[in-house]
Amino acid sequence: MLSIKNLHVELEDEDKKILKGVDLEVEAGKVHAIMGPNGSGKSTLSYVLSGKDGYEVTDGSATLEGNDLLDLEPEERAAAGLFLAFQYPVEIPGVGNMTFLRTAVNAQRKARGEEEMSAADFLKEIRAKAKDLKIDADMLKRPVNMGFSGGEKKRNEILQMAMLEPKMCILDETDSGLDVDAMKLVAEGVNALRNEGRGFLVITHYQRLLDHIKPDVVHIMSDGRIIKTGGPELALEVEHNGYADILAEVA
Protein backbone atom coordinates (compact mmCIF):
# COMPACT_ATOMS: atom_id res chain seq x y z
CA MET A 1 0.00 0.00 0.00
CA LEU A 2 2.46 2.64 1.22
CA SER A 3 5.95 2.14 -0.05
CA ILE A 4 8.83 4.37 1.05
CA LYS A 5 12.27 3.78 -0.43
CA ASN A 6 15.55 5.36 0.62
CA LEU A 7 13.82 8.64 1.45
CA HIS A 8 16.17 11.56 2.07
CA VAL A 9 14.73 14.91 3.20
CA GLU A 10 16.25 18.24 4.12
CA LEU A 11 14.71 21.40 5.55
CA GLU A 12 14.29 23.85 2.69
CA ASP A 13 15.37 26.95 4.59
CA GLU A 14 18.41 25.58 6.32
CA ASP A 15 20.90 23.06 5.20
CA LYS A 16 19.72 20.43 7.63
CA LYS A 17 19.21 16.76 6.80
CA ILE A 18 16.27 15.25 8.67
CA LEU A 19 15.55 11.96 6.94
CA LYS A 20 18.60 10.01 5.88
CA GLY A 21 17.30 7.04 3.95
CA VAL A 22 13.97 5.73 5.24
CA ASP A 23 12.70 2.40 3.93
CA LEU A 24 9.20 1.30 4.88
CA GLU A 25 6.42 -0.87 3.46
CA VAL A 26 2.96 -0.73 5.00
CA GLU A 27 0.67 -3.45 3.65
CA ALA A 28 -3.10 -3.10 3.37
CA GLY A 29 -4.85 -4.32 6.52
CA LYS A 30 -1.78 -3.84 8.69
CA VAL A 31 -0.94 -1.41 11.48
CA HIS A 32 2.65 -0.28 11.57
CA ALA A 33 3.96 1.81 14.43
CA ILE A 34 6.96 4.10 14.34
CA MET A 35 8.55 4.89 17.67
CA GLY A 36 11.59 6.91 18.41
CA PRO A 37 13.14 9.60 20.54
CA ASN A 38 12.33 13.27 19.99
CA GLY A 39 14.00 14.71 16.95
CA SER A 40 14.39 11.39 15.18
CA GLY A 41 12.35 12.59 12.15
CA LYS A 42 9.00 10.87 12.83
CA SER A 43 6.82 13.94 12.36
CA THR A 44 8.87 15.12 9.39
CA LEU A 45 8.07 11.81 7.71
CA SER A 46 4.34 12.43 8.20
CA TYR A 47 4.58 15.98 6.84
CA VAL A 48 6.63 14.99 3.82
CA LEU A 49 4.19 12.23 2.97
CA SER A 50 1.20 14.57 3.21
CA GLY A 51 2.89 17.35 1.20
CA LYS A 52 3.64 20.14 3.62
CA ASP A 53 5.82 23.01 2.35
CA GLY A 54 9.29 23.58 3.69
CA TYR A 55 10.85 20.19 3.02
CA GLU A 56 13.02 19.14 0.14
CA VAL A 57 13.23 15.53 -0.93
CA THR A 58 16.80 14.98 -2.11
CA ASP A 59 16.59 11.28 -2.81
CA GLY A 60 14.28 8.28 -2.69
CA SER A 61 10.59 7.76 -3.34
CA ALA A 62 7.22 7.39 -1.66
CA THR A 63 4.26 5.79 -3.40
CA LEU A 64 0.70 4.94 -2.44
CA GLU A 65 -0.64 1.97 -4.41
CA GLY A 66 1.94 2.79 -7.02
CA ASN A 67 1.09 6.52 -7.26
CA ASP A 68 4.10 8.76 -6.77
CA LEU A 69 3.02 10.77 -3.73
CA LEU A 70 5.90 13.21 -3.92
CA ASP A 71 4.71 14.41 -7.31
CA LEU A 72 1.21 15.29 -6.07
CA GLU A 73 -0.31 18.37 -4.42
CA PRO A 74 -1.51 17.81 -0.83
CA GLU A 75 -5.16 17.71 -1.97
CA GLU A 76 -4.31 15.15 -4.66
CA ARG A 77 -2.61 12.94 -2.09
CA ALA A 78 -5.76 13.16 0.05
CA ALA A 79 -7.93 12.23 -2.92
CA ALA A 80 -5.59 9.30 -3.63
CA GLY A 81 -6.45 8.01 -0.18
CA LEU A 82 -3.82 9.39 2.18
CA PHE A 83 -4.89 10.84 5.52
CA LEU A 84 -2.79 12.50 8.19
CA ALA A 85 -4.21 12.88 11.68
CA PHE A 86 -2.35 15.99 12.83
CA GLN A 87 -0.37 16.16 16.03
CA TYR A 88 -1.59 19.75 16.37
CA PRO A 89 -4.94 20.10 14.59
CA VAL A 90 -5.31 23.64 13.27
CA GLU A 91 -7.98 26.03 14.53
CA ILE A 92 -9.85 27.77 11.72
CA PRO A 93 -12.02 30.66 12.89
CA GLY A 94 -15.09 31.33 10.80
CA VAL A 95 -15.28 27.94 9.09
CA GLY A 96 -17.93 25.67 10.59
CA ASN A 97 -16.76 22.14 11.35
CA MET A 98 -19.66 20.67 9.42
CA THR A 99 -19.09 22.92 6.40
CA PHE A 100 -15.43 22.00 6.46
CA LEU A 101 -16.10 18.26 6.53
CA ARG A 102 -18.72 18.40 3.83
CA THR A 103 -16.45 20.48 1.61
CA ALA A 104 -13.64 17.98 2.16
CA VAL A 105 -15.76 14.89 1.53
CA ASN A 106 -17.19 16.32 -1.68
CA ALA A 107 -13.88 17.73 -2.88
CA GLN A 108 -12.34 14.25 -2.65
CA ARG A 109 -15.32 12.63 -4.34
CA LYS A 110 -15.17 15.17 -7.13
CA ALA A 111 -11.43 14.63 -7.57
CA ARG A 112 -12.05 10.90 -7.90
CA GLY A 113 -14.84 11.45 -10.40
CA GLU A 114 -17.51 10.29 -7.96
CA GLU A 115 -20.84 11.92 -7.26
CA GLU A 116 -21.08 14.42 -4.42
CA MET A 117 -22.79 13.29 -1.24
CA SER A 118 -26.24 14.76 -0.74
CA ALA A 119 -26.80 17.02 2.26
CA ALA A 120 -29.21 14.52 3.78
CA ASP A 121 -26.89 11.53 3.41
CA PHE A 122 -23.99 13.53 4.76
CA LEU A 123 -25.96 14.65 7.80
CA LYS A 124 -27.11 11.11 8.54
CA GLU A 125 -23.63 9.71 8.28
CA ILE A 126 -21.85 12.40 10.26
CA ARG A 127 -24.39 12.23 13.08
CA ALA A 128 -23.88 8.49 13.46
CA LYS A 129 -20.10 8.71 13.34
CA ALA A 130 -19.93 11.72 15.65
CA LYS A 131 -22.04 9.89 18.19
CA ASP A 132 -19.57 6.98 18.32
CA LEU A 133 -16.79 9.45 19.10
CA LYS A 134 -18.92 11.32 21.64
CA ILE A 135 -18.82 14.47 19.51
CA ASP A 136 -21.94 16.50 20.19
CA ALA A 137 -23.95 18.71 17.85
CA ASP A 138 -22.34 21.83 19.28
CA MET A 139 -18.85 20.64 18.32
CA LEU A 140 -20.05 20.01 14.80
CA LYS A 141 -21.47 23.49 14.55
CA ARG A 142 -18.52 25.37 16.02
CA PRO A 143 -15.68 26.64 13.85
CA VAL A 144 -13.09 23.96 13.12
CA ASN A 145 -11.22 23.06 16.34
CA MET A 146 -12.01 26.46 17.88
CA GLY A 147 -12.24 26.22 21.64
CA PHE A 148 -11.86 22.42 21.47
CA SER A 149 -9.93 20.73 24.27
CA GLY A 150 -6.90 18.61 23.34
CA GLY A 151 -9.03 15.47 23.46
CA GLU A 152 -11.81 17.03 21.39
CA LYS A 153 -9.36 18.05 18.71
CA LYS A 154 -8.00 14.50 18.41
CA ARG A 155 -11.49 13.01 18.34
CA ASN A 156 -12.33 15.51 15.61
CA GLU A 157 -9.35 14.20 13.63
CA ILE A 158 -10.68 10.66 13.92
CA LEU A 159 -14.14 11.84 12.87
CA GLN A 160 -12.61 13.32 9.74
CA MET A 161 -10.82 10.04 9.11
CA ALA A 162 -14.07 8.14 9.53
CA MET A 163 -15.91 10.44 7.12
CA LEU A 164 -13.19 10.53 4.47
CA GLU A 165 -12.54 6.76 4.57
CA PRO A 166 -8.93 6.94 3.45
CA LYS A 167 -6.88 3.94 2.34
CA MET A 168 -3.80 4.89 4.27
CA CYS A 169 -3.97 6.61 7.64
CA ILE A 170 -1.02 8.26 9.30
CA LEU A 171 -1.49 9.18 12.95
CA ASP A 172 1.08 11.67 14.17
CA GLU A 173 1.46 11.56 17.96
CA THR A 174 -2.27 11.19 18.31
CA ASP A 175 -1.81 10.30 21.97
CA SER A 176 0.00 13.52 22.87
CA GLY A 177 -1.95 15.64 25.31
CA LEU A 178 -4.56 12.97 25.99
CA ASP A 179 -5.55 11.46 29.31
CA VAL A 180 -6.25 7.73 29.49
CA ASP A 181 -9.99 8.00 28.89
CA ALA A 182 -9.59 10.30 25.91
CA MET A 183 -6.91 8.00 24.50
CA LYS A 184 -9.21 4.99 24.81
CA LEU A 185 -11.97 6.80 22.96
CA VAL A 186 -9.61 7.79 20.17
CA ALA A 187 -8.17 4.27 19.97
CA GLU A 188 -11.66 2.76 19.74
CA GLY A 189 -12.38 5.15 16.89
CA VAL A 190 -9.25 4.03 15.08
CA ASN A 191 -9.86 0.34 15.74
CA ALA A 192 -13.35 0.65 14.30
CA LEU A 193 -11.76 1.76 11.05
CA ARG A 194 -9.33 -1.14 10.83
CA ASN A 195 -10.10 -3.39 7.93
CA GLU A 196 -8.41 -5.50 5.29
CA GLY A 197 -8.14 -2.76 2.74
CA ARG A 198 -6.73 -0.05 4.95
CA GLY A 199 -3.19 0.56 6.16
CA PHE A 200 -2.15 2.47 9.28
CA LEU A 201 1.06 4.15 10.28
CA VAL A 202 0.96 5.12 13.94
CA ILE A 203 3.67 7.54 15.02
CA THR A 204 4.16 7.73 18.74
CA HIS A 205 6.73 8.52 21.33
CA TYR A 206 5.25 6.28 24.01
CA GLN A 207 4.15 2.70 24.03
CA ARG A 208 0.89 3.35 25.86
CA LEU A 209 -1.15 4.16 22.72
CA LEU A 210 -0.09 0.78 21.34
CA ASP A 211 -1.83 -0.94 24.25
CA HIS A 212 -5.04 0.26 22.68
CA ILE A 213 -4.17 0.22 18.99
CA LYS A 214 -2.36 -3.09 18.61
CA PRO A 215 0.31 -2.86 15.95
CA ASP A 216 1.38 -5.67 13.63
CA VAL A 217 4.83 -4.24 13.10
CA VAL A 218 6.90 -1.82 15.18
CA HIS A 219 9.76 0.28 13.82
CA ILE A 220 12.26 2.25 15.81
CA MET A 221 13.43 5.45 14.20
CA SER A 222 16.52 7.36 15.16
CA ASP A 223 18.44 10.14 13.48
CA GLY A 224 16.43 9.96 10.27
CA ARG A 225 16.56 6.20 9.75
CA ILE A 226 14.61 3.15 10.78
CA ILE A 227 17.14 1.30 12.87
CA LYS A 228 15.14 -1.66 14.07
CA THR A 229 11.95 -3.44 13.09
CA GLY A 230 10.08 -6.09 15.02
CA GLY A 231 6.73 -7.23 16.41
CA PRO A 232 4.64 -5.67 19.19
CA GLU A 233 7.20 -6.89 21.73
CA LEU A 234 9.61 -4.23 20.46
CA ALA A 235 7.31 -1.56 21.82
CA LEU A 236 7.31 -3.21 25.21
CA GLU A 237 11.07 -3.32 25.18
CA VAL A 238 11.13 0.43 24.66
CA GLU A 239 8.61 0.85 27.45
CA HIS A 240 10.80 -1.05 29.89
CA ASN A 241 14.28 -0.04 28.89
CA GLY A 242 13.87 3.24 27.04
CA TYR A 243 15.52 3.93 23.70
CA ALA A 244 19.06 3.93 25.01
CA ASP A 245 19.54 0.13 24.86
CA ILE A 246 18.28 -0.16 21.32
CA LEU A 247 20.35 2.77 20.14
CA ALA A 248 23.42 1.28 21.77
CA GLU A 249 22.72 -2.15 20.35
CA VAL A 250 22.42 -0.83 16.80
CA ALA A 251 25.44 1.41 17.13
Partner: peptide, 9 residues
Protein backbone atom coordinates in the same frame (compact mmCIF):
# COMPACT_ATOMS: atom_id res chain seq x y z
CA UNK B 1 -2.38 23.20 4.48
CA UNK B 2 -4.84 21.62 6.92
CA UNK B 3 -7.68 22.12 4.44
CA UNK B 4 -5.62 20.86 1.51
CA UNK B 5 -4.52 17.81 3.48
CA UNK B 6 -8.24 16.98 3.73
CA UNK B 7 -8.58 17.15 -0.04
CA UNK B 8 -9.81 20.71 -0.53
CA UNK B 9 -8.11 22.35 -3.52
Amino acid sequence: FYLRARGVS
